[in-house]
Amino acid sequence: MGEPGSSPVPTYGWDEIRKHCLPTDKWLVIERRVYDISRWADGHPGGSRLISHHAGEDATEQLIKDFRALRRAAKDMKLFEADPKFFSLVVGHILLMEGLAWLVVYFLGTGWVPTILAAVVLAISQAQSWCLQHDLGHVSVFKKSRWNYVAQQFVMGQLKGFSAHWWNFRHFQHHAKPNVFHKDPDVTVAPVFLLGESSVEYGKKKRRYLPYNHQHQYFFLIGPPLLTLVNFEVENLAYMLVCMKWADLVWAISFYIRFFSFYAPFYGIPGTLLLFASVRVLESHWFVWVTQMNHIPKDIGSEKHRDWVSAQLEATCNVEQSLFNDWFSGHLNFQIEHHLFPTMPRHNYHKVAPLVKSLCAKHGLSYEVKPFLKALVDIVRSLKKSGDAWLEAYLHQ
């Protein structure tokens, strides 16, 4: 109740609240209270796009009592504290690979065998750099957040040639709404590929930009080979120019200066461009298979307004733990734990995993763990399933 003489507090139903999800009209529900965030959204620390995805919804962390207790237990176990030694080893591993690739060319020459070997080693370095900058975007490795972000800019810019702001812009949306069309950029890939519910939608509307019933086959031609070489390069550059992220642009340019300074003396400009393209294609294969084996085979569709825990579990699965899987995927084989606890450093995922598994068993929630090869094959199977669903709807509805 309000104060004596004050106006009664208005109440709203969900039919009314959900209307306020427009670019200039955004409402948000937190702890059963309705907030108009239309003006405040532009100043949201995570970006206006991120908070706008929750417009017209209940954005309360609807974590069940046991999950709250689990999180408190994880904090008591100090599982949210990063180990500087671990991340120092990761940095050392990346720099070692960079140096090794140059030494291969320096001592063995520019023949096919040493060039291929150097490209593979550089691709490993690039893959591990993805993982490290991903860590720095989530985890407080340094006590001061400013240094944490500077480190991410260095890794993403100098070691990879991309913008840290661009990555965070994409990735934070993915974590907020995993596998939700038009809110998670990782699965909003139509009209090139159709995933989940979009397959039937395109079929019903008789849309046929590509032969989607064969997308599991042309995936190998335009998916893994071209993601980082073409899509990410273009999107990343456009983002830096449009959003005027000049510091990120300088960091990215420094990557290309270093790369060409290292390898142009051996290969010349054309040969260095070919080496660069080869590294990007190899890196792209790693990125697509490792990051999507946990998501594409899961539920993909429109907004279901699920609570936090259910939304993360429905959109993710794990891949079996092993020394190789942990290293090769940068611990992204623990995707469930990463999505439930995005600020937890990856070297602690295996410690919290048994607690998460027990919680899921208690409440009848799915906790899916796959062998590594099966997870990779499931990407192709899910593409074929979606393509077949499109064809069925296209021909018969």
Rank of each mutant, 00 (worst) to 15 (best):
K370T: 10
P84R: 07
P342S: 11
W112K: 13
S199Q: 05
A252W: 00
L108F: 10
F154Y: 04
F334E: 01
G268V: 04
G387N: 04
R258T: 13
S163R: 01
R18Q: 14
R207S: 06
L195I: 05
E98M: 14
S284Q: 02
H165W: 10
Q321F: 10
L89Y: 10
I300T: 02
G364R: 11
F219D: 02
N236I: 05
E235L: 12
F80I: 00
N213I: 09
F372P: 06
I94F: 02
P270G: 04
K144C: 09
P10G: 09
P371M: 07
F262T: 15
A315C: 04
Q62E: 11
A101D: 03
L159H: 02
K204Q: 15
E235N: 14
N294T: 08
F260R: 01
R18G: 09
G330Y: 02
P23G: 01
I17A: 03
I116M: 04
H174S: 10
D184P: 05
T188F: 07
Y35M: 04
A59Q: 03
A127N: 06
M244V: 10
T316V: 00
S261V: 11
Q335A: 00
A247V: 14
V139L: 05
K357N: 09
S358W: 04
I336Q: 00
G43C: 13
V377I: 12
L100C: 05
Y35T: 05
P224D: 03
L100M: 06
H396V: 12
C360V: 04
K26V: 08
L237C: 09
L395W: 09
L391P: 00
N325D: 08
S145G: 09
L136W: 02
D66Q: 13
I124S: 04
F372Q: 06
D135N: 11
G157C: 00
L89C: 12
E303N: 12
E314Y: 11
F259T: 00
I257K: 06
F276E: 05
K298W: 02
Y239F: 08
R280P: 03
A123W: 01
F87G: 02
G2P: 13
Q312R: 10
P185G: 07
L122Q: 03
S6T: 15
D186T: 11
V352I: 06
E197H: 08
